[in-house]
Structures are given as C-alpha cells and as structure tokens.
C-alpha cells in the first residue's frame, strides 16, 4: 500500500506535514489507549502499519534514488509497549488463567477463576477478574476489580497501570473542549463582575450605582 495513503497526506506534503500526520496517528493508535481492550491486537497492527509507512517515506526522501528501498532500521519513537501485557510478570499464581485470557477464552478463564475460593483470592485474582470482565465489555465490574487489586497490592505496577487505563477511559472529552458550563461566563461571573466594577467606581470617588 502507498505509504502516503496510510498517513493520509499527499505525496507533495512537506516533511513537517508528514511528521505532524504521523504524530497524530501515532497518538490515536498508541497501544496504551487500547490496553485491556478486546481490540488491542488490531490497534497494534494499525500502529505497525503507520510506523512502517513513516519509515518508508523517511527513507524514500532521504535517499531518492532508491525509492523502493525499504529499511526497518529507524527506531520507532512509539514502540509497542503494551504488547507484553500479561507477559512481563516475573511470578504468577495463575499462569494457566493468564494464558486463557491471552487466547481470548474468557468463559473458560472465568470458570477457573470462580472455582478459586477463600484465601486463594489474592490481589492477582482480582486483577485477572478485572481483565476478563474488561475483555468482555463489562467495564463497571472490571473497574471495581482493578480497584480492589490495587488496594490489596498498591506496589504492583501491572495492576496500577490497568487501573489507570480504566480510569482514563471513564472521562470522555474527545473534542478537547470543556463541556462544563461553568467554565464560560455564567450568571455568577457576570454578577461578580458588576459588583467589582461598582466597588471600583466608589473607590474613584463616584457614588456607585447602587
């Protein structure tokens, strides 16, 4: 596929424009956004496509004679950090369940998890419950399980990042503009403004207006 099309820019675009388009896309498809999402793998693929397209354009522009040369030597600024999710733990009490979750066999994983009773339900158990529910789309349940996991083991970075990701998604403001009405000029602001102006008038020797 044409790398320019992947980035959504024309072939005559300047280097700066290309970089901006790449940044925009990289921000959109960054693996951190899709952590714990059932679509994480597809976002990762997309990210790879964007990275490759950008590398290819850079290579083509740097070295115009070899338009078809393709080098992967560029170090990508946005690497796939979360592809190792669930794989970067050093020790796990439930390796089988983690494998099931990775393979997408959520119902089997849930059954095994529910079979664990009493003291077996440690912080990791709550974390894995959260993972299963998160992949199922039951985000309310997932959120409360992640919260419990973090409360039981506040030092674990894996649990913490899962909770942070879930919390980020609980605030939606894609347009970047603040939808809280009080941020604008509310009636209160107007009243306060008038009162201040009135005080100023009085200070300057006027009689104020009320």
């Amino acid at each position: 596929m044409n790398p320019y099309q992947v980035l959504g820019v024309s072939e005559t675009a300047t280097d700066a424009e290309i970089k901006a388009a790449y940044r925009e896309l990289a921000k959109k498809y960054h693996p951190d956004n899709y952590a714990q999402s059932p679509l994480a793998d597809l976002a990762e693929e997309k990210m790879k496509e964007v990275n490759e397209a950008y590398d290819k354009i850079c290579e083509m522009r740097k070295n115009p004679s070899s338009t078809n040369a393709y080098s992967n030597s560029y170090s990508n600024t946005y690497s796939n950090t979360s592809s190792q999710y669930g794989a970067n733990y050093t020790h796990s009490d439930f390796p089988d369940i983690r494998r099931l979750i990775r393979e997408g066999r959520l119902d089997d994983a849930l059954q095994l998890l529910n079979g664990i009773q009493g003291t077996g339900r440690n912080a990791e158990w709550y974390f894995l419950m959260g993972m299963v529910y998160s992949k199922k789309g039951w985000s309310e349940q997932a959120y409360s399980y992640f919260q419990t996991a973090c409360r039981m083991d506040p030092t674990n970075s894996e649990f913490r990042s899962a909770l942070d990701n879930a919390s980020t998604r609980r605030n939606y403001n894609p347009s970047g503009y603040n939808t809280v009405s009080s941020a604008g000029c509310s009636m209160c602001d107007i009243c306060a403004g008038v009162m201040c102006a009135n005080c100023c008038c009085e200070c300057l020797g006027g009689r104020g207006c009320c």
Binding site: G137, S139, A166, T168, R169, R170, Y172
Partner: peptide, 10 residues
Amino acid sequence: LDNCLSEALL
C-alpha cells in the same frame, strides 16, 4: 457513561 463512549470511539 463516559467509559462506553471512550470504548466506542476506540
């Protein structure tokens, strides 16, 4: 509610 919208946007 926000959570649903974030996921839909992703």
